[in-house]
Nucleic acid binder design. Structure first.
Lengths: 229, 229
DNA sequence: GGCAATTGTGGCAATCCGGTGGCAGGGCCC
DNA sequence: GGGCCCTGCCACCGGATTGCCACAATTGCC
C-alpha cells in the first residue's frame, strides 16, 4: 500500500510540480491550495505525511496555523515545512510548532525525497513499538484513528478532537487507570485538572445520547479514569 | 534526568564550543574527537542522541562509517550530521545511511537546538507505548500498578489510593518490616502515626470482607508492619 | 501480676475530589 | 458582524476519603 503524502502549497505550478515528482516516486499524493481546504480534507482522512508551505495566498502565516491544527489531529503525523522563507526565525518557529523538518524550496528533488524517506523510517519505528493500528476495537466501541470517528454499538458518537483523544487514551488499554496528566498529554493539552473533568462530563453525555445505559468510563477516585472492559 | 547527547567532531575548538552550548541548554554532553573512540564509548553506553561530523581528521568519510556502525547498534538512536560539507550528494548519502537530520555548520545555535528538540519529540513518540504491564504477585495477592487494583485469592479488594500504596509498600518486600514513616513516604503522606494505624485497620477490614481468615498484615510491635509471606 | 508503651476500634469532622450547570473567550463559518 | 461550536474554568454540592481522638485491648518487660 503506497504512502499518502499531502502537499499544501498555494502556487498551482509549484504544487503540480512537486505532486508529479512525488507520484513518480511511488507515493500517493493529495494536493491542496488553501489552509481550510487542506485541514478539512485531512480531518476526514489523515495522510501519512504532510508537506506544507508557510505562506498560503493572502494568509501569510497560514502554514504555521495549519501545522498547529494538524499537530492537534495527530501527534505522530510527520510534518515537513517546505517554503521559500529561510530566516532562522522561521525555521525555529516552524520546528517549535511541532514540525519534523524544515526545508527551503531550493532543495533538490533527491534531497527532498531523502528527507521524506528518513522521516518515514523514523515514523515507522514508532509504529512498530506502539499500536501502529489505525483502528481500535474494544467490544461495542470502535475507533478510527485516520478518520477521527468513534462508534458505540455501531452508532457514531460525535466527539470533538480533544474528546476523541481522551477516549482513545482511555480505550487503548481498557482497565488501565489514566490520571489527569496522562490524559492531558495524550490529547496534547496543558490545562487545569477541572477541565479534564469537564471533558469527561461531555464525553459521557455524548455516549449517553447514543446509549442511555452507557457507563464504561469509570472514575477511580483520586487516581483518574478508566475504560471498563 | 537530562538527555545525553554525544558529539563527534575532530576540531577541538568547535567540539568544545558545541559541547558548551548544549550543556547550557541542560543537556548532558559526551564529546569525542575520533571515530573509534566514539564508537567504543557508545557501545558501552548509548547516548540519547548523536551529532556527528563527516570528516574526522584523516578519515575523510569517518562520520559516514560511524553513522552506519551506530545504526547497527540501535535503529532508534537519533542521529544528526553536522558538517561543513553542503553538497546535495553528501546530504542524500547521509540520510540514506540512516541519519535523521543533516545540518551544515553555518546553522545558528537556536536552529540546532530546535532541530534537536524536534528529534527528541519524535523519538519520544516511539518510546511511549513500549512499557509493559506492571504487576506484583505474592501468592494469593496480586497488585496491578496500571489498573490500581488489588486482588486477594482472585477477588477484587476495593482499596482507596492511600490504602493501595500502603499495601504495595508492604507487599513489595514480603517479610520486611516497614515502620510508619516508611509507609507514609511510600504513600506520599505526612501524617500522624495514629493515622497509619487507622489505615492499616481499614485495609485489614477490606481484606477480611473478601476472606474472613485474612491475617497477612502482621504487626511488629514497636517497629511497624510486615506482609507475612 | 503490674505497669508503661503500643496498637486496635469506633466514630466523627474536616478535607478532598469529582459531577454539574453555567458562563466567557476565541475561533470559525456564513 | 452575528451565530455557533469548542474549550477552559469556576462555584456549588454531595459523597468518598482521610486524619485524628478517646478509649479499650494487647504487648513487652520487670
Amino acid at each position: 500500500m503506497a504512502r499518502r503524502i499531502a502537499i499544501v502549497e498555494d502556487d498551482p505550478a509549484i504544487r503540480a510540480n512537486y505532486a508529479d515528482a512525488l507520484k513518480k516516486h511511488g507515493f500517493e499524493v493529495a494536493a491542496y491550495g488553501a489552509r481550510a481546504e487542506a485541514l478539512a480534507a485531512m480531518k476526514i482522512r489523515l495522510p501519512d505525511l504532510a508537506i506544507i508551505d508557510i505562506g498560503l495566498g493572502s494568509d501569510v502565516d497560514g502554514g504555521f496555523a495549519l501545522c498547529r491544527d494538524l499537530r492537534a489531529l495527530s501527534a505522530a503525523l510527520p510534518i515537513i515545512f517546505l517554503t521559500a522563507r529561510d530566516s532562522d526565525f522561521d525555521v525555529v518557529s516552524g520546528l517549535r510548532l511541532g514540525a519534523d523538518d524544515y526545508l527551503t524550496k531550493d532543495v533538490s528533488l533527491p534531497h527532498l525525497i531523502a528527507r521524506i524517506a528518513a522521516l518515514f523510517r523514523r515514523a515507522e519505528l514508532a509504529g512498530e513499538a506502539g499500536s501502529g493500528e489505525d483502528q481500535v476495537e474494544r467490544g461495542a466501541l470502535s475507533i478510527d484513528l485516520k478518520r477521527f470517528t468513534v462508534r458505540w454499538q455501531g452508532a457514531l458518537v460525535p466527539l470533538t478532537l480533544t474528546e476523541f483523544w481522551m477516549v482513545h487514551a482511555l480505550a487503548k488499554f481498557p482497565g488501565h487507570v489514566k490520571d489527569r496528566e496522562q490524559l492531558m498529554s495524550e490529547a496534547n493539552l496543558v490545562v487545569d485538572d477541572s477541565t479534564i473533568t469537564s471533558h469527561v462530563k461531555r464525553i459521557r453525555r455524548k455516549f449517553a445520547a447514543v446509549d442511555a445505559e452507557f457507563d464504561r468510563i469509570e472514575t477511580a477516585y483520586g487516581m483518574g479514569y478508566r475504560w471498563k472492559a
